[in-house]
Design a protein around this nucleic acid. Structure first.
Length: 489
RNA sequence: GCCCCCAUCGUCUAGAGGCCUAGGACACAUCCCUUUCACGGAUGCAGCAGGGGUUCGAAUCCCCUUGGGGGUACCA
């Protein structure tokens, strides 16, 4: 808890569902703010100026997803705040006003070039083997020329003058000194489109200024944007925030994680549906490019916030590795309170008749299978035999195991000793089976497998004593009798 | 093409000149525990991209090469 007044933001654009990369960037901003404590604020802002691709469904997915991951913001489109609105499409007039200021101060100008003209310019540059960029041709239009274009009915875009050459430098909080030459920025940049809508780089700067953002932590795909945005801060003669660029997450082929190439696996919602724990996702994402000083692997959001610093964020790409995420998920499934895991498992058990068990029994059921789960969606299959009236025993198992004389002896003995089982007591039930084994002279597989198969429909699964204890007398009796009936003499 | 960023086991990383015969975790393999599957425990496998410097000493600093990634829009 060093200094207060840190104001950071996550600014997703609702052009797709919540991306794991966005989640990680949000996480680093969140941790940074929480680490500084005091009056520090984590802000959520929607960058929806791309009217073609933005959708309300995506907005909902992003907000829900981030909240599900437990990253709560202090200001945002849904909770408001002192610098509302937090949605760019609601600030279009404001951007317009701000752009006119830059024109008045001589930093920006109207550009009447049509897309066709620009295309032609590029074509020519390409043929001449020159770098493709805007040639600043509208920068010094005379009043007469302005009039002429206006009379032709052309509506102008607004461009920011970019002085060339000059070096733009900043000390990146993650990467250290970065410098970019203004000549490599592609010429005077458009800040407002000819349809009057502000462009990304401009809207971002205006918003970050409006919202008094102190630190900008984002993906390194924004490094050149930062150079452009720095020019805008200068034009506004405003204080410049600190910038930090996090290396991207890539796939096993080392390409940027994208919806196009990877489909749903880049979306947080995909993992949510599969039954991943938000705690595990956050832990995994945090640990991806940041390591705590003490090297621990498992930590909560709060614990991470205590010790999070940007100087421990990695400068190089990280491969998004699902097996590792799975390991984290398994850890949390095993160690979070059983009542919580049961709550989360319930949606995956809706196909079953849950009323046949009490809540404590349901917790026991989830408790005995959780050890083997990677994702919670697997709980459906893992617990099937607890709920279904009839257990399916395969042809083969039937032939090779169930219909042998030995198995029939074991099962008959279990049926005849039903009264001896202390239902509800796993250890007690187990010892009754052992007792039966002793009397029959069976042990190991010979003893356990027939019972296991009769009750679970398979020879591997959760602990046998627990299974008996939870199933209870009625279910055990009917399953044992069912199994005996499968191979009548 | 041009610009920028990056470079330690297959993967995530520790490492800020001697503590490194390079540590941990995931994955994988073997063993132990165990009626089974898992869990857990133990062990093993495996890495400083290459080449030059600087230095008594380099994974760590500098340069080059190579490789990888990102950016080059009136998208965000």
């Amino acid at each position: 808890m060093v200094s207060s007044n840190v104001r950071v933001r996550i600014a997703p654009s609702p052009t797709g569902n919540l991306h794991v990369g966005t989640a990680r960037t949000a996480l680093y901003n969140y941790l940074f703010a929480k680490h500084h404590g005091g009056d520090s604020k984590f802000i959520m802002r929607l960058e929806d100026t791309d009217e073609l691709r933005s959708k309300e469904d995506f907005t909902k997915d992003i907000i829900d997803g981030l909240k599900w991951l437990q990253m709560h913001w202090d200001e945002g489109p849904d909770v408001g705040g002192p610098f509302a609105p937090y949605r760019q499409t609601q600030k279009l007039d404001h951007y317009d006003k701000m752009s006119k200021k830059l024109i008045a101060s001589g930093h920006a100008y109207f550009c009447y070039c049509t897309p066709e003209e620009l295309e032609k310019l590029k074509e020519k540059q390409k043929n001449d083997n020159q770098a493709q960029r805007y040639d600043n041709r509208c920068r010094n239009l005379t009043d007469e020329e302005h009039k002429k274009f206006a009379e032709q009915g052309r509506s102008p875009a607004i461009r920011l003058k970019i002085e060339e050459p000059r070096v733009i430098t900043w000390n990146d909080m993650i990467k250290g000194d970065i410098s970019i030459d203004s000549s490599d920025l592609g010429g005077d940049m458009v800040i407002v489109k000819s349809n009057g809508i502000a462009l990304y780089n401009f809207a971002v700067v205006v918003d970050d200024l409006d919202m008094k953002i102190s630190h900008v932590i984002r993906g390194e795909d924004h490094i050149h944007n930062t150079a452009k945005q720095l020019l805008l801060y200068e034009a506004f003669n405003a204080d410049i925030p600190q910038f930090g660029h996090v290396a991207l997450m890539v796939d096993t082929d080392r390409h940027k994680l994208s919806k196009r190439a990877h489909g749903e696996m880049v979306h947080v919602d995909y993992y949510r549906r599969l039954g991943y724990m938000p705690e595990a996702i956050v832990n995994y994402l945090a640990h991806m490019s940041w390591t705590p000083p003490d090297g621990r692997e498992i930590f909560t959001l709060d614990e991470a916030a205590q010790i999070f610093t940007l100087d421990r964020v990695s400068t190089s790409h990280a491969v998004f590795d699902v097996p590792r995420l799975n390991w984290y998920n398994g850890q949390y499934i095993r160690n979070l309170p059983i009542s919580l895991i049961t709550d989360r498992a319930l949606p995956f058990l809706q196909a079953y008749d849950l009323a046949q068990y009490s809540r404590p029994q349901l917790e026991e059921i989830v408790g005995v299978v959780r050890e083997g789960l990677t994702t919670l969606s697997e709980v459906t299959e893992a617990t099937r035999f607890f709920f279904e009236r009839q257990v399916q025993i395969s042809e083969e198992l039937n032939r090779t195991l169930m219909c042998t004389d030995n198995s029939r002896k074991v099962l008959s003995a279990v049926r005849d000793n039903m009264a001896k089982f202390p239902w509800g007591d796993a250890k007690g039930c187990k010892s009754v089976i052992d007792q039966i084994g002793k009397e029959l002279g069976f042990k190991g597989k010979d003893l356990y497998w027939p019972v296991r198969a009769a009750l679970q429909g398979k020879t591997s699964g959760p602990d046998l004593g627990s299974t008996l204890a939870i199933l209870g007398e009625a279910r055990v009796r009917s399953r044992i009798e069912g199994a005996l009936g499968l191979c009548p003499r």
